[in-house]
Design a protein around this nucleic acid. Structure first.
Lengths: 287, 287
DNA sequence: GCCGGTGATACCGCACGGATATCGGTCGAG
DNA sequence: CTCGACCGATATCCGTGCGGTATCACCGGC
């Protein structure tokens, strides 16, 4: 049939396309790929011919994604993640002492986590658990590309799309204020009151791409930074109640009953067949 | 550095490995791949060297998967599905009239489905919906490799692992008997009674690999076959109550209150960004 | 107008993927 | 015990395809 080429898309082509789609510049993309620009242009053309689809609009001054191109960008990233995951998980499966990698947000749920690790270690057939601390929103990617086997997430902050999960624990949120703040002794506050505190802005967390949303609050990367800012009287923050372990004398906390509850979930890639992950999940749900 | 090869795994290699791992025979795998055996052997060796992992145990008489090999088999299938999905979804995104493909089990929930299609068609911005009828358990694969955009599944029969879902409707199950059966007039039956009916065996459905579990019941592939067998007095079956639309005079149905309830869910791939899928889901949840 | 910048084209060389021929080891038949 | 069938590995050759260099064509701007 027309254009009946061998339809096999190779990961190399997907990597090339992702580089170009992210840079929107053939020269820089080629540089990033450690190759020259002409073969890159040719490879993209070949990919377009093979798919029968225009992926990029080129003007001599700029490169832009077409509708189909942005679909491929998203899909190609997922596909490349899956290939990388295959590689990593295979290597790990062949390792002397396989072990299991657990990803969790740095500084969160240390209480739950240590209980889980202790309980799992006591299980028969337990393997070594490597704990991987990471920033907010990173966990999903880690699970998807095989760098982690299982993760602790916090709904509704983290997205659990595409993962299997089991709820572990639900808790209310509290607002953390500097110790001397006028509202620090209130028995509770409402969301409306918290968001309209003009003297203490809520912080801005990085999005998945590492950039910060627009706004006026201070930019924070982890809870240590956050709590320091609060102690200095430069911010306040809405956090799950269990973070009280991280607080010091310089902090006060006030419950916010109408803030959305936070659920800690244990998550793993959907087709995981690892005994260790299954045991870990079972242990966690029994805590 | 030692073994510092370019670590890029290509889909070609994954395809080769999957063929060999499925056939457990280099000759047949090569035949299936329309190539000669020696380059296939070499490619697998190269893959093993690159991963630094033994994937297959070869004796001159048989080929067997190692532990790591079976991990790679599963992961490689997922990765190849993701690549295929990228290809298909990109092509579809570039199509003149994109449309959306909805997969559903043949013969199930026709009532709910037609209501959904009608309601969605009335929405502003609705696109054409192509309905894809498929056998039990096929839907997950269709969503994963991009042949379908959205599906209707039935928990607990279908697995929803790795998909985003929204519950639509929960219903009880009934047992369908031949019209003249002694139990046909009972107001209800228990699971224990149904499973011990010696004169009317429960049918066997194919598993995901297309093979049937061991057992004595008749093998069925779809509901038409099933209901015909029941009408002939050769089987009985436990089905969701909404299938009554498919029944004829030759059938009788008796509620089974202690059978697990069946939930119809609408499911879509986790990172779907399609407006049409989102609209379809929203419409479905409002029914 | 010229110049800087960018993607496409032309052409070349080599590495890698695939084919054929053959080997080596193992199991089963007699 | 020997021979033959079977199967994967090795050796070797060839052609394609990928990547590199040089250059062109096009657009915008000071």
């Amino acid at each position: 049939m027309g254009a009946g080429y061998d339809a096999a898309v190779e990961t190399r082509e997907l990597r090339y396309f992702v580089a170009v789609a992210e840079e929107l510049h053939f020269g820089r993309a080629a540089q990033r790929l450690a190759m020259a620009q002409p073969p890159l242009s040719r490879a993209i053309q070949q990919l377009e011919r093979r798919l029968g689809v225009v992926l990029l609009h080129r003007t001599a001054r700029a490169v832009a994604l077409t509708e189909a191109g942005s679909v491929l960008l998203r899909e190609a990233r997922a596909a490349l993640d899956a290939v990388e995951a295959a590689e990593r998980r295979t290597r790990r499966a062949a390792a002397e002492r396989p072990g299991v990698v657990l990803a969790t947000k740095a500084g969160a749920s240390s209480e739950l986590l240590s209980k889980l690790l202790d309980a799992y270690a006591a299980e028969p057939g337990a393997v070594a658990v490597e704990v991987m601390l990471c920033g907010p929103g990173e966990q999903e990617g880690l699970l998807r590309d095989g760098r982690a086997d299982v993760a602790l997430l916090h709904r509704p902050f983290d997205t659990t799309a595409g993962l299997d999960t089991e709820d572990l624990h639900t808790e209310q949120q509290v607002v953390v204020l500097p110790a001397g703040h006028p509202l620090a002794n209130r028995p509770e506050l409402s969301m409306a009151e918290v968001t309209t505190l003009t003297d203490l802005p809520l912080p801005r967390w990085p999005r998945r791409d590492g950039r910060y949303p627009d706004g006026s609050g201070p930019q924070v990367r982890d809870h240590t930074q956050l709590f320091q800012l609060i102690a200095l009287g430069r911010a306040c923050a809405l956090v799950p109640e269990s973070l009280r372990a991280n607080l010091r004398d310089a902090h006060a906390r006030v419950p916010v009953p109408d803030a959305p509850a936070v659920t800690t979930v244990i998550a793993w890639p959907p087709h995981s067949r690892s005994q260790a992950v299954a045991d870990l999940v079972r242990t966690a749900t029994r805590l």
